[in-house]
């Protein structure tokens, strides 16, 4: 590889790009190119230095302060998270729903369920199954209602509404 070829390969590299092995080997044995690369590299660093990422300034910057004032006065500032947020995760909803369903399914087979059925007969069974139905329906309603965004996105209801 000639000096010209090596230098052209070096010049075609991007910022932070690894130098190819062939160029590195050439630089190892060619002090002229090595000096040239060192100078070029230093020049690039120096020219970018004034606009490099600035450390946080202690003094209040008037332009920044005015921008912040505009944000505040236009009511665009992001609000602090609501600490009393009562959002219930999807997992909790599912676990609670399964526990509810399990409870209703197993109750007639427990001692208390068998005794109630034996003693009260259909006077127990009918209200019990009505109660189960109402409770499960109400639970599902609350579950869907509080997670409506999820269901709209999941089942693509937005598109069908738009269409």
């Amino acid at each position: 590889m000639t000096c010209e070829q090596a230098f052209n390969r070096y010049l075609s590299l991007d910022k932070y790009e690894r130098v190819p092995l062939s160029v590195s080997v050439h630089l190892l044995f060619c002090p002229v190119c090595r000096t040239g690369v060192r100078q070029l590299n230093r020049a690039e660093i120096l020219v970018a230095q004034p606009l490099s990422m600035q450390k946080s300034q202690e003094a209040v910057d008037p332009v920044l302060a005015q921008a912040l004032e505009r944000i505040m006065s236009a009511g665009l500032a992001y609000s602090l998270p609501d600490r009393t947020d009562t959002h219930v995760s999807m997992l909790r909803w599912v676990i609670s729903g399964l526990a509810l369903a399990f409870g209703f399914t197993l109750l007639p087979f427990t001692f208390m369920g068998s005794w109630s059925r034996d003693v009260f007969g259909s006077s127990f069974s009918v209200p019990f199954y009505i109660l189960c139905g109402v409770a499960v329906t109400a639970y599902c309603g609350m579950f869907i209602g509080t997670n409506i965004d999820f269901f709209v996105k999941k089942f693509g209801m937005e598109d069908s509404r738009a269409a």
Binding site: P50, L51, M53, Q54, S56, D61, L64, M72, A77, Y78
Partner: peptide
């Protein structure tokens, strides 16, 4: 910033203001 911390915005903006 998205949690309402304006000082964080000052820090971030301060870094790139000159650019």
């Amino acid at each position: 910033i998205l949690n309402g911390d304006l000082r964080a915005f000052s820090t971030l903006a301060g870094r790139y203001r000159r650019r």
